[in-house]
Simulated assay, not measured.
Amino acid sequence: MHIDLSGRTALVTGSTQGIGYAIAAGLARAGARTCVNGRGAASVEEAVARLRADAGSDHLVAAPGDLATDRGTEAVVTAVPEADILVNNLGVFGVAPPLEIDDDEWRRYFEVNVLTAVRMIRAYLPGMIERGWGRVVCIASDSAVVIPAEMIHYGLTKTSLLALTRGFAKAAAGSGVTVNSVIAGPTHTGGVEDFVRDLVGGELSWDEAQRVFMREHRPQSLLQRLIEPEEIAHMVVYLSSPLASATTGGALRVDGGYVDAILP
């Protein structure tokens, strides 16, 4: 299977590290002009420099800006006026006792994990529809379907992403633009390493901590290991390509069999 995204511009939100960085690298390797986003200019420039080496691409654009703010959103749209591929990856997560999550924290999670995706889709989907081609991919989570007791605020926002993806797919119906979400399972990132250690303790080696985490907190995983970010990126690159032209309004799973259902 050969995926060639030459001539396409892709914007990946929250792409200076983790899953977002892996997605940006995958799109760049496929030939897309790839725009890297993060809150700070320094972290974005550092990620762009790493991508030049990792992906072997000179078609990279720095697009710093805090998308949870009007000013940051304006800065990103100014840096990237048009995009053929939009990947809404930006998100925050963390453990919190459900009854101790206050209103401000609920609002913060919804603002960052949901409304930033709405803003980006509103900014770029009309141009995609007008040009008759485009791809929107939102990075959701197994937590959208299996709400974790230790972070229901995160789970709720990821469920919301599934709903808005389906809704915007209907808005783009018949236009040549596809809108999908990817349900990512437990993935090996720096943030998840911290999360795992918070749950199982910091005295174990990483391999031991990962095994304990999967056994005690994610026992339904059929993969029985954390997913690597590149494995998520492979699905996103496919969905961003012409090969996925008949896939829209979907929630595609890269969850290692974590969600115990035939359909999401």
Rank of each mutant, 00 (worst) to 15 (best):
A42R: 15
S240T: 05
L162Y: 02
G250L: 08
A49V: 01
A144L: 06
V212H: 06
P186S: 15
A24G: 10
A25L: 10
I3L: 15
W206T: 06
Y238N: 11
R135F: 02
V44P: 12
G190M: 06
G250E: 13
G7D: 14
C138M: 13
T157Y: 07
D142T: 14
G201T: 06
P148R: 03
H188R: 11
R135M: 13
M120G: 01
A117V: 00
A62I: 03
R29A: 15
G202E: 13
V87N: 10
R253S: 14
S6A: 15
G65Q: 01
A49Y: 02
R197V: 04
E130Q: 12
I101K: 07
K170Q: 07
L11S: 02
G26P: 12
G14E: 03
W206H: 06
R197Y: 05
A149R: 14
V76E: 02
A28V: 03
G31L: 12
R197C: 05
D102T: 07
G7Y: 08
T16L: 11
F110R: 09
S43K: 14
G31E: 15
D84V: 00
R39M: 00
R33K: 14
D58C: 01
L51P: 09
G250H: 05
L223K: 11
S240K: 09
G190R: 10
V36T: 10
T13W: 06
V179H: 05
V254Y: 08
T69E: 02
D194L: 04
S175T: 15
R211P: 07
A24M: 04
V254M: 10
L239A: 09
R33V: 01
D66N: 09
L27Q: 11
D70Y: 00
T247K: 06
C35E: 09
I152V: 15
S205L: 03
T78L: 02
H234S: 12
R122D: 11
G155W: 03
V146A: 13
A171E: 15
T159V: 11
I152P: 15
V77F: 02
T247P: 03
L222T: 12
P126C: 08
G202Q: 07
I23Q: 10
V137P: 01
L204S: 13
R8V: 00
V87R: 06
R39S: 04
A169H: 05
E230P: 07
S175D: 08
M120R: 00
A75W: 02
A10D: 15
G94W: 01
W206L: 07
E231F: 11
L99G: 10
S221I: 08
Y124Q: 04
E228T: 11
A49C: 01
R119I: 01
D104T: 14
D260M: 12
Q17Y: 03
L90V: 15
S221Y: 08
T165N: 04
A246N: 12
R166V: 08
P186K: 07
D58W: 01
A68Q: 03
